[in-house]
């Protein structure tokens, strides 16, 4: 399944890039993310509670950041599984300056399996969209907060 979209955040590009690669901020912004711990260089152990419709479960897995070219590009690779199935995928993030704001273009592939794959295929795209919009709304709040106090790494 393809996932792609664009999102504008009202903050400078380096600030956004820094937030997007900050595990503490990411954990707060990713809906259902209960833990995101650094276990290596650009490698994190994650625990996520997520679901589609009535199928909810805890997913455990890894998040890896690759191809990092601050402040314009990186790739995120995720892989997790739980009782209701698995999810794995990757997405490229491209950040563009846009008149003081930052335009994020993301594009990736998501593969799911197990019970969640058999439940509301038509809903999964919608669920992913909803998660993305909640993620960016939270991220916007985070970059505004960190911009206001001028400390990107304050987490």
């Amino acid at each position: 399944m393809k996932i792609e979209g664009t999102q504008e955040l009202h903050a400078p590009r380096d600030r956004v890039y820094s937030a997007l690669t900050n595990p503490g901020i990411l954990q707060r912004c990713i809906p259902g993310c209960e833990a995101l711990e650094k276990i290596g260089e650009n490698l994190f152990a994650a625990m996520l509670k997520a679901g589609v419709g009535a199928i909810k479960g805890t997913f455990k897995g890894e998040v890896r950041l690759e191809d990092m070219r601050p402040p314009e590009h990186y790739r995120i690779v995720v892989e997790g599984k739980g009782g209701v199935g698995f999810a794995k995928g990757s997405a490229d993030f491209d950040l563009e300056e846009n008149d003081g704001a930052t335009l994020i273009k993301y594009s990736g592939e998501l593969q799911i399996g197990g019970t969640i794959a058999g439940v509301g295929q038509r809903m999964i795209q919608g669920a992913a969209k909803m998660m993305a919009s909640r993620f960016f709304a939270a991220l916007e709040a985070e970059v505004q907060r960190t911009t206001a106090i001028g400390e990107a790494d304050l987490v």
């Binding site: 399996g113 794959a117 058999g118 509301g120 295929q121 809903m123």
Partner: peptide, 14 residues
Amino acid sequence: YDEQGQLVTGELMD
């Protein structure tokens, strides 16, 4: 079943 052998029609919604 999709090309990975995942059952896509897993309930009566689908």
